[in-house]
């Protein structure tokens, strides 16, 4: 990753994360197929809702014939971390027009957010509309196509896990968190390691008590507050 912020370098930077999208996208397509969702429903979920993990939850709730309102509420809760990520990411685009802000915001994901946070460590804290749009669009298209291919092939692949693709997502986050750790000079390695250990501990205990998605939010917010306090102590 270098300091170039063009559309082309956005495409280059997002490519490693594409493996994660393909792995999880195929998996979603296969799950959707076995849950008897039609191709149009898969396309609607991937291209209109575009919500990664929430799509799995919507699919299982549809299968369980849960009411529409609780499906929508669950989607909101699972995606509420988007509020935190978008608020962070938006800081870099305040000088851009409102239209451009809305365009960028509409395609934010965990991965493109994390990628952008890594990128700005190499560009003296700057991001560009062109770079972010490239990352967003590639991620969006690859996700949508991978889920459709998965749904189409659903009946053919008996056991996609044997190729290890289900680990792509975790591997991607390991890579992203490591790159963040070594390149965020504002916070420094020691403080970040401390915050990471705190988040892991909170998350570990929280998932015994609340859902994984709520635990994600609680651990994130607690980690931020902990980090703020630790920073004051330094």
């Amino acid at each position: 990753m270098d300091s170039s912020l063009t559309f082309r370098s956005g495409i280059k930077d997002v490519l490693p994360t594409v493996f994660g999208y393909i792995g999880v996208g195929l998996a979603f397509g296969i799950v959707a197929h076995t849950s008897h969702l039609g191709l149009w429903m898969v396309a609607g979920l991937s291209f209109i809702v575009y919500a990664g993990s929430a799509q799995f939850i919507i699919t299982s709730m549809l299968l369980a014939q849960d009411p529409i309102t609780s499906i929508i509420l669950s989607t909101f809760l699972v995606n509420s971390r988007m509020i935190l990520m978008s608020t962070s990411l938006a800081q870099y685009f305040r000088h851009e027009s409102l239209t451009r802000n809305i365009l960028l915001g509409s395609l934010v994901t965990d991965e493109t957010f994390a990628l952008a946070m890594n990128k700005q460590n190499h560009t003296a804290g700057k991001l560009s509309f062109a770079w972010q749009s490239a990352a967003n669009l590639i991620a969006y298209l690859v996700w949508g196509v991978a889920t459709l291919v998965g749904a189409y092939l659903g009946g053919l692949i008996k056991n996609p896990d044997q190729f290890g693709f289900d680990f792509a997502l975790t591997a991607m986050f390991i890579g992203l968190v490591y790159l963040q750790l070594i390149s965020d000079r504002k916070l420094g390695v020691r403080l970040q390691l401390l915050v990471m250990a705190f988040v892991a501990l909170i998350y570990y205990f929280a998932i015994g008590l609340i859902s994984e998605n709520m635990a994600l939010l609680v651990a994130t917010a607690a980690g931020c507050l902990f980090g703020m306090e630790m920073k004051k102590c330094r």
Binding site: Q91, A114, F173, L187, V195, Y203, S211, T220, G223, C224
Partner: peptide, 25 residues
């Protein structure tokens, strides 16, 4: 703003933990 500077590292850690722990409600 200070709170938000910790969002990247905390959210990425939490997402990684999601892959490393198995929940048993």
């Amino acid at each position: 703003l200070s709170f938000l500077t910790f969002v990247p590292i905390t959210i990425m850690t939490a997402l990684t933990c999601q892959g490393l722990f198995i929940a048993h409600p």
